[in-house]
Amino acid sequence: MRLPKFQYLEPATLAETIPLLMEHQGRSKVIAGGTDLLVALKQRLHTPAYLISLSNLAALKGIREEDGMVTIGPLTTLEGVSAAPLIREKLPGLAQAAWEVGSPLLRPMATIGGNLCLDNRCRFYNQSLFWRSARQPCCKAGGKVCHVTNKENACFSTYSGDVAPVLIALQAEIKLVGSQGERILPLEQFYTGDGRRPNLIGGGEAELLTEIRIPLSSHTGCMYKKYRLRDSIDFPVVGVAVALRLDQPQGICREAKIVITGVGSRPVEATQAGEKLTGREMRPEFILAASETAAAEIHPVRTDQVGPSFKRHLVRVMVAEIIRELGGVDR
C-alpha cells in the first residue's frame, strides 16, 4: 500500500505550529512518530492535504521531576519513557505500559503523546480501502450504520491505548495549547467516549497536546497488565491499570482507581469497583467483589476478534490479580 499525496509541513517552533493548525484545520493531520498515522493513511482512513510534523519541536521532548510532579513531553518516545530511570523507579506501572505497546521496532519511533491520541479501533474500520469498499461505510468512516451492532448513528469503536489507563489511574493532567491560549485538564476529560471523535483534538482541532503531568503523591502502588493474542505487535484485548493508595503496606486502601482499555469507546474507569476497595483492608473477599464489580461495569462489543464475554472474564481475572499483587495478598 502506498501513502496518499500530501504536503509536508515542518514548523520550527510551537509558536509557528499553532497558526498552521488553524490555517489548515479540517484538512491536516499532525504527525509525531507516525506509527499509527502512516498505517491509517495507507488504508485511506484519512487523506489530509497537509501533514504537520512536530519533529522540530525539541521542547516537547523529555522527562523531568519537580515538586512531586513528573512532567513528560509528549514527543518523548515510548522507548524513552519505558527506559527512563526516573519512570522505572517512581512510576513502574507507566514504564510497563509504555513497554507493552506494539513491538520493539515501533517503540523507538512512537511517542507517548501519539499513544494518548490513538484513534479508536474496530475490525470494520481499521482495514484497507479495498476491504472497506466491499461494504457500506461504517459510522466511523462517515456512513450511517455501525457494522458491529447494526445500530444507526452510533459508533462502538474501541479505545485500545496502553498508556492512558495508567495515566488516568495516576490522576495525570495534560496541557493543551491552541490559539486561545493553553488549558490544563485531567486526562480522563480528554476522552469523549464518542467512537467517531474519541478525543478533544483528534478531529483536527487547532490544539496541541504539549505536556503530561503526573503527581507522585496520588498513589502508593500502580500496575498495568495487558492481555493480547500474541505477546508482541498486538493491541490489547484487555488492558487493566490499577493505582492504589494504601495507608501502609498491606494496610487500608484510601483510594483505588481501576482503569481499563480495550473494552469501550474510551479508557473506562471502574469507579464502583474502586469504591468497593476504598476504606477496606486488602482481603480476598473485597478483592473478589471489586473484580466482579469491574467486570459488570464494562460493556464491550465485538470490535476485534474476541467476544465480549471473554473480555469480561479477563477483566475479572486481571483486576483481581493486579490488586492482589499491589496489596501483597496471596492467592
Binding site: S103, R123, N126, Q127, S128, W131, A134, R135, L229, R230, D231, S232, I233, D234, Q305
Partner: peptide, 26 residues
C-alpha cells in the same frame, strides 16, 4: 493462533498480517 475468517457472504475478514495472527518470536 492462525485462521482466515469469512463473513456469512464469503468476504474475508482478516486479510492482513495484523489481523491474521501468526505467532511472533515472543
Amino acid at each position: 493462533y492462525e485462521e482466515i475468517k469469512l463473513d456469512e457472504n464469503g468476504k474475508l475478514l482478516n486479510p492482513s498480517l495484523h489481523d491474521y495472527k501468526t505467532p511472533t518470536v515472543m
